[in-house]
Amino acid sequence: MGECVLVTGGAGYVGAHACKALAKAGFQPVVFDNLATGWAEAVKWGPLVQADLMDRAAIDRALADYRPVAVMHFAALSLVGESMKDPGLYWRVNVGGALNLAEACVAAGVKNFVFSSTCATYGDQDGVMLTEDTAQHPINAYGGSKLAIEHILRDYSAAHGLNHVIFRYFNVAGADPEGEIGEQHRPETHLIPLMLEAVAGTRPALTVFGTDYPTPDGTCVRDYVHVSDLAAAHVLGLRRLLAGQGNGVFCLGSGRGFSVREVIDASRAVTNREVPVVIGARRPGDAAALVSSSTLAITDLGWEPQRSTLRQMIGDAWAWAQKPGYSR
């Protein structure tokens, strides 16, 4: 068995795919997850420590028991609308949990930290290709809490030598092409799985939140990246740290934005079925357009996204949606 990596939120969608990628790369993932939104059934490549990041003693025990060479931090509350209604919850859980984790790493001598951040730290910057140097002006507490964690890591690196790689990405989509894990949230809020549930008839219709944004067709524009490509980038970030190459911040995206209507059109082409749609009001905190460059990740990390086309992401998600899932 290879070197151990503690994966917080490893029972969730992105975290579980990262665990599979870690195992394939020869590492031993240890999942640290409270299972509030994750799935025990998604923990397939190493042990599960069922605990909460608000419990500092539990983090200390996990680090002492497994002695990881690094931490990958995915665990977080991530609903933009909820963060607008209850910002205190996001500051307490996301920032408080990350601070506990960073402090525990320093105390245990764990020097490598890979952080799952978000393009939501940039706020609403329509028409701008987001890069690592773009100014960050979050417009919701979710993005604000993630930016605060980036600042914690910067300060803990300077003060305590906590080396870090930060990945900023937005809409993750698709599913493991081998069909072992896929996208399923409690509650489900992501566009593509909601759309495919409407196509399959397990929900009445897909709600499109707002059609009056300053975009070509009036619906929000987002960049999408395949979850397996994303997981591969995290392994490359880990290897960078273990090789002593220093801190890094990387955006991960396709460099092209797709509107909600374009995603719906692509779904029709993949599934050969219509998508039932109803139009709703804008959601508070939603940016009009977010598109991310990944040039630095490609040139510096050697990242080579393999499946991050809209047709491939929807196709993999559709294949997963037709399999028995964790709650089906």
Rank of each mutant, 00 (worst) to 15 (best):
A120I: 02
I59G: 04
Q322A: 07
F113P: 09
I298T: 15
V208E: 06
G285A: 11
V49C: 15
K323F: 10
A21P: 13
G12I: 04
V263Y: 00
G201P: 09
P138N: 08
P284Y: 02
A148Y: 00
F258P: 00
M129Y: 03
T131V: 05
K111A: 11
G280H: 11
Q306K: 15
I59D: 02
G96R: 11
S293D: 08
A70Q: 01
G12F: 03
G9W: 04
K146F: 02
P87C: 03
S116C: 15
S78H: 14
L101H: 05
G285M: 03
N163K: 03
I298N: 07
I139H: 11
P29D: 01
R283D: 05
R311P: 07
G174I: 05
H17S: 14
G182S: 10
R67G: 09
P193R: 07
G248Q: 04
A120F: 07
F32V: 04
L238M: 11
A11V: 03
N140R: 02
N171M: 09
D133E: 15
P177W: 05
G81S: 10
S267P: 05
V106T: 09
A159K: 11
H73R: 15
I314M: 13
T8I: 04
L89E: 05
A243K: 14
V225H: 02
G210H: 00
V71A: 06
Y13T: 01
P305W: 02
D52N: 09
G182V: 08
A266M: 15
F250Y: 15
K111H: 13
V249A: 11
L191T: 00
A198C: 10
S308T: 10
A317Y: 03
H137W: 10
H164V: 06
V80K: 15
W39Y: 14
G123V: 06
A40Y: 02
A135D: 00
W91H: 10
P29N: 08
D60K: 13
G280Y: 04
L191R: 04
Q184D: 02
G182E: 03
V208C: 09
R261S: 13
V43S: 07
G109A: 13
T202Q: 00
A200M: 14
Q125Y: 07
A231D: 03
A76P: 10
D212P: 00
V235Y: 04
A135K: 14
A141D: 01
S116T: 15
N34M: 06
Y224W: 12
P29K: 04
A42H: 12
R92Y: 06
V30G: 08
L252G: 08
E41S: 15
T215R: 12
A319S: 14
